[in-house]
Design a protein around this nucleic acid. Structure first.
Lengths: 344, 344
DNA sequence: CGACATCTAGTAACCGGTTACCTGGCCCGG
DNA sequence: CCGGGCCAGGTAACCGGTTACTAGATGTCG
């Protein structure tokens, strides 16, 4: 009951009456082996229900390692979809994929990267917005070098590239472009006072979206108004809180809202509803990401090719695509959360 | 540029001027070593940025294997939450966790189980409702035995147990209980004609929920009406389709709906809306699972402790809890999708 | 002062595979 | 009839660690 006696290649060799080398060769499929011998071996393999030990294999032969994706949590659709893309592409490439979660904890991230180095992962895909400070750059550069030394490739998804020399691949969404497009959508509907809800200064993803928002305003000749940019995290609760605060503390001097992402939009809509403001009749709103709640909320938003991001990350890691920074395009999904401003 | 020369324990030993055994011992931390020696070794480790090879370790020493969870997809919240629970508990137990997806394909499931056997996974956690036919039982029993032979434990989550002898652990939600409770909730609000939307005869999870629905009706002395049980898959699209069909092909001879899960409810609500039926004013509806869309829809539903399921599965696999079948309790979450029937 | 216990560190076998190299049998041509 | 080539399969080194066993140095006690 205690230690299980596993079936080894030697057991198979013994039963088939051949050497371990022959068993290994039959299983590998390369190397010529007599049909009779092959049959004996296959018989023994089946009889004993032999399964080769992946660790022993990885140790002796140079075989492809696993592909790992590291995210904050898999319970957030944004990450889940990307992970799904990674999973699929990795499977297609014949790789095992590991999905690791950090819970947003830098310490855990570090120990996971360490763990993946020990596993001799072929690629480590890091996903998610971050504060790009000096400490971060240092940490990533360290990861990049140590992973490279171990023969692993580092892929940054939706994160800014490192300075030159950092051996990391980069792929992300065109956040500025999408934000520009969806803001223009509001502008072309006549909106001029647009509240940006959920900016996070210093966070790469958020910064790009705000940049797109501002450039779209500029394109329409609308002066940017700092009081229309409200900070907040990318969560439903934060969206609800920020909206509630804004509604109760200041004038409703805007006709539309651009939420940092769909979760923020969902929270904001609840807050609006509680104040008796209906979407889109009393207030227009758009989101970003095109994740589940947006369908049920009828939310106009920016669709991101999440799974494509995951797939691309894997392909890049395996050297299928180029190694330059890649940006994936986005497109608006029009639903029913925006009304044109009626000219008075 | 081609093959990376990895740093091995021998390199460290050489640099520190000691034997590999000493390095191994210093790193393991057991075994007495002079402070001076330890320092020399640690220095060399840092200088060379040495990372032990997990495969070599797994091969020689008896170390814990990874914990794997196998689901259809990680893009469905139900699975994502459970996976999250597994991840957390596995990390807490010092285990690496693998999240694998099958896309609902039996063939892929088989090859994944095979892969996990090769990896010498410590536990394999299979999640999700299935059709319990003879073929399924045979397949699971096979998995169970072959995994057991490899020293791995098999945990079935939300799936029915195998016949006696199958070395599999079982943990699931109290689906019948939750369904009974939420149906009673509707009954106590005066509803008597309750449409069950999304039954899937043969599927374990669905069957339990239908059973709870029926027993609650019986408890209130309401005769079950087969025409009120509509089949359909557990997805938004299926819910929408089934609801649309029902509304256009038959009379609206019900005042409330019990959707097989929240996604089905979301689809049904959209269909109702398109027919001009408002929730809850014109129609009451409840869901099951308590996953994201239900918050935004204001849907009364049954909360499942998803992450707790994941955590329990891991604990059971590691022998922390008992080995008997475990059932996790559920509770109703009342939101705003049910109105009492006004007595006329 | 010698016998023996204690402590530290080295030697080498082993984990379970892969594969470079070698061997023995057979067929062929000269 | 013999030497070379080919083919199938065996032998053993190796991948990178762990650890049982052993050896040498030191300390202790009678």
């Amino acid at each position: 009951m205690s230690t299980v006696k596993r079936v080894t290649i030697r057991d198979v060799a013994g039963r088939a009456g051949v050497s371990v080398a022959t068993v290994s060769r039959v299983l590998a499929g390369d190397y010529p082996v007599l049909a009779a011998t092959r049959n004996k071996v296959m018989r023994a393999v089946r009889d004993l229900d032999y399964v080769p030990n992946a660790h022993a294999r990885a140790l002796s032969a140079d075989r492809p390692g696993a592909i790992a994706i590291v995210v904050n949590t898999v319970a957030v659709p944004y990450y889940a979809y990307i992970a799904q893309g990674v999973e699929e592409q990795a499977a297609r490439e014949g790789r095992l994929s590991l999905i690791c979660t950090t819970g947003g904890d830098t310490g855990r991230e570090l120990s996971i990267v360490q763990l993946l180095r020990e596993q001799r992962a072929e690629a480590v895909i890091l996903v998610g917005s971050v504060v790009v400070d000096e400490e971060y750059r240092k940490r990533m550069t360290e990861y990049a070098h140590s992973l490279a030394a171990a023969g692993s490739r580092l892929v940054l998804c939706g994160r800014p590239p490192l300075e030159e020399g950092g051996p990391a691949l980069v792929v992300g969404f065109d956040n500025a472009g999408g934000a520009h497009a969806v803001t223009s959508h509001l502008l072309s509907a006549g909106h001029r006072r647009i509240l940006y809800l959920g900016s996070r200064p210093g966070h790469s993803t958020s910064d790009s979206r705000v940049a797109g928002y501002r450039s779209a305003l500029a394109g329409y000749g609308v002066a940017a108004d700092p009081t229309l940019e409200v900070e907040g995290e990318f969560s439903r609760a934060a969206g609800y809180a920020a909206m509630t605060t804004r509604l109760s503390s200041g004038p409703v001097d805007f006709t539309a809202i651009f939420a940092g992402n769909d979760l923020v939009a969902a929270g904001a809509i609840q807050a609006l509803r509680e104040r008796g403001l209906r979407v889109p009749d009393d207030m227009s709103i758009v989101g970003y990401d095109d994740v589940p709640p947006s369908v049920d909320l009828g939310l106009t938003t920016v669709h991101l090719p999440h799974d494509e991001l995951g797939r691309t990350a894997v392909r890049m890691a395996l050297g299928r695509d180029g190694s330059g920074p890649t940006v994936l395009g986005t497109h608006i999904v029009v639903r029913d959360s925006v009304r044109p401003i009626t000219v008075r």
